[in-house]
Write a protein that binds this DNA or RNA. Structure first.
Lengths: 156, 156
DNA sequence: TCGATATAAGACTAAATATATCTTATATAT
DNA sequence: ATATATAAGATATATTTAGTCTTATATCGA
């Protein structure tokens, strides 16, 4: 598993929406500006979030995005997996058939355990909790200034 | 974090050496053949393992690699981090300075926790344990035939 | 000491993936 | 209708991963 920039952006997007609460429509333009995500890139990410049932996309004038459910019901895991796909730390976790006998393999078992733990931790965290506190990747809610151009490099 | 092919190969290499036990010299050629790793690629990986103090490299005729310590003292984590560097699931975990206030950031705290858990799980596992049982990525120890060309694709 | 054999080290290439951006189409409010 | 906003997919660029190749160095044994 690797949190790509797209994954990070997805978290920011949902976090920003969570601060406005469920159902509030926010334009892509605003979200992009406030989360420092390229607007066109955000569009693609939003489409994945929509496909996963996390947000709803409204087209046309005054369009934008809104959360479909309460932030408390949206887990960090759900958002991440909506963007980067199912988390699997090693190939054999996601595709057991990639090894000839993963059922018996000790290495495989360790990866499986680690993978489960990771997913559990990310699932425990919901966006109501996240939105309630300060986050380093967004400007403080709701209006205070101070843009935060994130430093890019080495995402690993 | 992402287990790259190089990381996977590193695990196989150490696992194969672990089955021979500490101090036994095994040629790169044999290791490469038995673990299905390209020999030149294995050379690079071995150099990283050597730099990390896990193996010793013997040059010259009848050269090869050997474990410097007992397999029980080599953790999965040590091998992985020797190859792919320190594990950090998100940029802000490895480089807190990449965000303006990671100390206060809830998102950051979640990643930190997940990261610690993952490292702990990988650290708990040592190569004596791994070598004792069947592994899907190696031919059964010590001589039985049956090569296992692993299927490549989608490492994520 | 010389030659055969083995790895070292780093340059180089190729492929895959991530990160955008651009263009044309579609939907909606006024 | 028109202006505005997103959809969808093609395209481009950059980065990372994976693998190969070449030259150098070390060691064994005749």
């Amino acid at each position: 598993m690797r949190l790509t920039r797209a994954g990070e952006y997805g978290i920011r997007c949902v976090l920003h929406l969570a601060r406005h609460g469920r159902g509030t429509l926010v334009s892509r333009k605003e979200i992009a500006a406030r989360t420092d995500v390229p607007p066109h890139f955000l569009a693609k990410i939003a489409q994945q979030l929509a496909k996963a049932g996390i947000i709803e996309i409204m087209q046309g004038a005054n369009g934008g995005y809104r959360l479909l459910t309460d932030p408390s019901e949206i887990s960090l895991l759900a958002v991440i997996e909506a963007i980067i796909g199912g988390i699997s730390l090693n190939d054999c976790v996601g595709r057991p058939e990639s090894c000839h006998n993963s059922a018996l393999c000790t290495v495989h078992r360790v990866w499986n355990k680690a993978n489960q733990q990771l997913r559990a931790t990310l699932q425990e965290t919901n966006f109501a909790t996240l939105a309630a506190e300060e986050a380093c990747c967004l400007t403080p809610f709701p209006e205070a200034g101070g843009h935060n151009p994130l430093q890019r490099k080495k995402m690993i």
